[in-house]
Design a protein around this nucleic acid. Structure first.
Lengths: 177, 177
DNA sequence: GTTGAAAGCCATAATCG
DNA sequence: CGATTATGGCTTTCAAC
């Protein structure tokens, strides 16, 4: 009885477009694909203990629901001639929509940029960059940032080590098992 | 003649273990796989205008040379019940090896952590986190960070927008064409 | 929603240019 | 080093539970 009503409730949530209901198998699939996005469907199915065809349906559903946004190859920055990383904290003036969006677009176009965050805090933007060496970093800061009129203040933080997590778990509220 | 000697030189560089020599086709392959790591070999070959078998060899070589480090599925943080992101800037005391490494390990174990950077600057660490809401963020900061003895100072920056680049180009020095 | 089988297609390796 | 060809295996679809 309880099981039935829970199942009905889940279906209701899914029909309503709620993306946040993931059962144990969905979570396992997401974990495996975060570790290796190229894992063959057969192997993926074996790891999460379901049939390959079921796995295919689940995988496709996760994509269509927007839970899986894409698959990206991770490239060694040193091999690209960019062994040095930094986070450049930028404060712009004025901090208006007319300045923020063009600045984001501009920064994303720079070949050195890996990612940009627009943040609420003493600084307005955190720009993660990868460069060849200290000279390159200096050129980037001077030529591409401080030379711009809207850049009011800037702090450059050299990056010693950068760790990215291979598996981000859902919160308890986003699970249904 | 010139072409021959250039090819020989490239081969020499590759044999010597230099990771940094990428020709135009390698660059194109890396660009496509950064956009979609699950692109079938056949399609990848078509996009970079080489035969599928050649593409397979190139792709494998890039993996074995360490240029391609892995393939990761990108998951929607909102679907995981973590629609709110923040960058927590942490200063630790003392800033010694005995404190830094355990702190990095500790932070990476937190379910809220997406990535951690150990940086040189006024702050020692930048921790990128994803949480359910402001209450969750407050709990995280108080229970998992400021409660620790080595955490001397902390700034929480709410994240409005976060853009990640799909294609990071190699520097001119890392190309051979 | 899950399973199992069948068909088509792709990845892979060997061979040759 | 790159293209062509053949095969084994996987992805994918279908009907059935």
């Amino acid at each position: 009885m309880l099981c039935t009503s829970l199942a009905v409730f889940r279906q209701f949530l899914r029909r309503e477009g709620t993306k946040s209901v993931l059962d144990a198998i969905d979570v396992a699939i997401l974990a495996e694909l975060q570790k290796d996005a190229r894992l063959p469907n057969k192997d993926l199915a074996a790891r999460v203990n379901i049939a390959p065809s079921t796995c295919l349906v689940r995988h496709r559903a996760l994509r269509e629901r927007g839970v899986l946004k894409g698959y990206r190859a991770e490239v060694d920055l040193g091999a690209l001639g960019r062994p040095l990383q930094a986070v450049i904290a930028v404060r712009v003036r004025p901090h208006t929509r007319a300045v923020v969006r063009p600045f984001l677009d501009y920064v994303m176009e720079l070949p050195e940029t890996i990612s940009v965050s627009h943040v609420a805090g003493p600084d307005d933007f955190l720009v993660h960059v990868a460069v060849a060496d200290a000279v390159h970093l200096q050129q980037l800061v001077l030529d591409s940032f401080t030379s711009r009129r809207e850049v009011a203040q800037l702090h450059t933080n050299l990056l010693f080590e950068h760790r990215v997590k291979a598996r981000i778990p859902p919160t308890a509220q986003a699970r249904s098992d």
